[in-house]
Design a protein around this nucleic acid. Structure first.
Lengths: 229, 229
DNA sequence: TGGGTACACTTAACGCCGTTAACTTAACGG
DNA sequence: CCGTTAAGTTAACGGCGTTAAGTGTACCCA
């Protein structure tokens, strides 16, 4: 008798129904389209019932976002898996997955990185769960394989993360296809195309390519001593 | 008799008073601390009086933000002025000014790049007024001076802008000094220190430094044909 | 000098919001 | 059978953005 409740739901199903309704509303109409009353209406309970499961609206939203980031971590892990350890492709795959997931589930990202909350508690432990560790490991592997310059790994991660996240947030804030600057002469239109076009700049820098590909091997040898920050 | 109004303000002063109150509230308590009623109270009028000057709250906020960005453009122009045209330092100065201004006036940036509005009309013409043109010119100058690799200037601008903006938004969302990852082994703590630490990676790429400075000249010669795009 | 008109506001109110308080109802344990 | 707890309910509060209608005042033109 404890698996069925008066309204036909099993134990604990109301909470997940609330979370699902909140997630859907967030995806459909964004944060301002998510109100306690609309969530409650979708679930079929009164608005105040939500307070039995979540302390307040912020806690509800945080819970939704946390769930989204769990999927995010899996998404990234899956995207980098097929690429060999220590390769730059593996690192690039993380960035591409970051972009792709964010563009597909942009409502979560809008909320999480809204920069709105004065206390960004949601982000304080994000780096652990949200793919930071995955990217860092890929970076360390690439440095060990001498595919990547040996500098402080956290600096390198921050560099790559900043570049990708910046491209993402700019694209989201200023829809690239609406901005008159892009899409005229530029070859790259979408954020993903731009990300790929960044490749040579990221690898070889903004001053110019390092050396002809023929001399690539001995370049990698002598680099570590001089390159280490 | 048209320079003084009943409450002792000159013509047009109410509008600027509203804008100033809104700006202060935005800086003090962020967007959710700015309500039509609180703004009105500071100015000394009723809340609905604001609607005689601004269509709605969004328009008021947009007007405040636009004013902030005007100062932003001047700030950047001033920061790059002392550096010689065509130098990488000039380009770097733009990024540093971007960071510094955003960190000092972070409330404007939080609002402008909030990614919250479904219609980001505020940003559609930002690149024109907000320093995009300044950065682009600095980039083109550097390419002409062969200080910088010759690629699509808009791609290069997007690369540099993404990197800087990403570092900024990540720092703002996840206060770096609160994140356990940073500040332990890492040399760079503040966003500005990180930005400076990015320097070698930006110039020479993540694979390694280009070549000894002695061979810099002939590198620059043969590069333009191969390096373009 | 007087009437009309436009402006610069005001008060009152609507509907929505997050949240709290108090109440009901049902199940369970001793 | 009683007490407790869980899982809701309804009613209400204060604040929000916004609209509608009213008020006074300055100005223009006959």
């Amino acid at each position: 008798m404890n698996s069925k409740e008066p309204n036909g739901r099993g134990s604990g199903e109301v909470e997940t129904a609330i979370l699902e309704a909140a997630r859907d509303l967030l995806a459909e109409k964004g944060l301002q389209g998510l109100s306690m009353r609309t969530v409650a209406e979708r679930v079929g309970v009164s608005a105040t019932a939500i307070y039995h499961y979540f302390e307040n609206k912020d806690a509800l939203v945080a819970s939704v976002v946390q769930g989204g980031f769990h999927r995010f971590g899996e998404y990234i892990e899956q995207a980098m898996a097929p690429h060999p350890k220590g390769s730059l492709e593996r690192v690039r795959a993380v960035g591409e997955a970051y972009l792709r997931f964010a563009l597909e589930n942009h409502s979560y990202f809008r909320v999480l990185f809204s920069l709105q909350h004065p206390d960004p508690h949601a982000l304080e432990d994000l780096p652990e769960g949200g793919g930071y560790g995955l990217l860092r490991q890929a970076v360390v592997d690439a440095m060990d394989a001498q595919t990547m310059r040996r500098v402080d790994p956290d600096l390198m991660v921050m560099f790559l993360w900043s570049l990708t996240h910046g491209l993402l947030t700019i694209s989201m804030a200023c829809r690239i296809d609406h901005c008159p600057e892009f899409g005229k002469e530029s070859v790259a239109h979408t954020p993903l195309e731009m990300f790929r076009a960044f490749g040579p700049l990221v690898r070889e820098g903004i001053t110019g390519p390092a050396a002809p590909p023929a001399a690539a091997e001995d370049r990698a040898e002598g680099r570590i001593a001089a390159g280490g920050q």
